[in-house]
Amino acid sequence: MITYLEAIREAQRQALENDPRVYIYGQDIGAFGGAFKATKNLAQSFPGRVLDSPISEDAMVGSAIGASLQGMRPIVEMQFADFSTVGFNQIVNQAATMFWRTGVPCPITIRLPSGGTPGSGPFHSQNLEALYAHYPGLILMTPATVEDAYSMLLEAVALDDPVIFCEHKYLYFHLKAESLPSEALPVGRARIARAGRDATVVTYSAMVHEALSAAEELSTQGWEIEVIDLRSIKPLDTDTVLASVARTGRILAVGEAWPWGGVTAEVLARVATDGFNLLDAPPMRLNSKDTPVPFHPNLWGTHRPTAQTIVSALRDLLRL
């Protein structure tokens, strides 16, 4: 069995092994192996290519951009997605604009350990994918499975554009697969995680698993819910979403991120614009509450969508 976290480590090992242009840069990632051990033993296996950085997110990203312009393929590990805001300027103004302005690609991968876990609180739990997706010039990957964590990270490193790789901390240790995949859907294609008939749930990252649990529960009552895992939120596979809504006539978009704007709003805007006539009911969405992410597990468990709140939203959507 291999965990989601081990898949990320193996993808990095593969990338380092396959391509001498790859190096990894981040806080505590060298001999220590990273705050979550995503780079455990990599510094020993690849001397000089897994480098501890100072606590300087702006300079970490800026230097990765520079190295990429000189032919390298850096992977930057943010210790937590939340801290990437310190490097925000370099990501959105330098990396994201480089190809458009100069015609020179900027192949960097920035790993954001994202999302909430019990007790992590306001500054170690954030989901920033919508923030980065807003900027042209960036690719946003949000893997929900062990297989995708592995194959999409390898694809991220191989792509010529800056990739924000949102890996979910809640899945690090719990999510397991039999083995690593040898092939994968290309980035930009959503996956039907569960086929259904009565309603479509469109989601990504850790919420895929909450949606699958919700679908399982409703199936015992005779309702078949289709669950779509977006995999990457930019590009967003609108075609797969619309095709599913054409079958079910109902859509619920679910995201762990905050409600204002964001991925769920984008999904529903596209469905309402391009698939209005497919809808048998008003489109719905479910996000976290519009507060900072709380510390205490009692509050945190209620702050974000769960299988239970997804079931309840789906019952509304199905007019039950």
Binding site: G66, L69, P74
Partner: peptide
Amino acid sequence: PMISHLGAMISVVNGMLMAHRFQ
């Protein structure tokens, strides 16, 4: 090509020099 945010080009130069070291 400078962006308008001051100080932002220095670390990009650093990265280019780090690349030279790798290479």
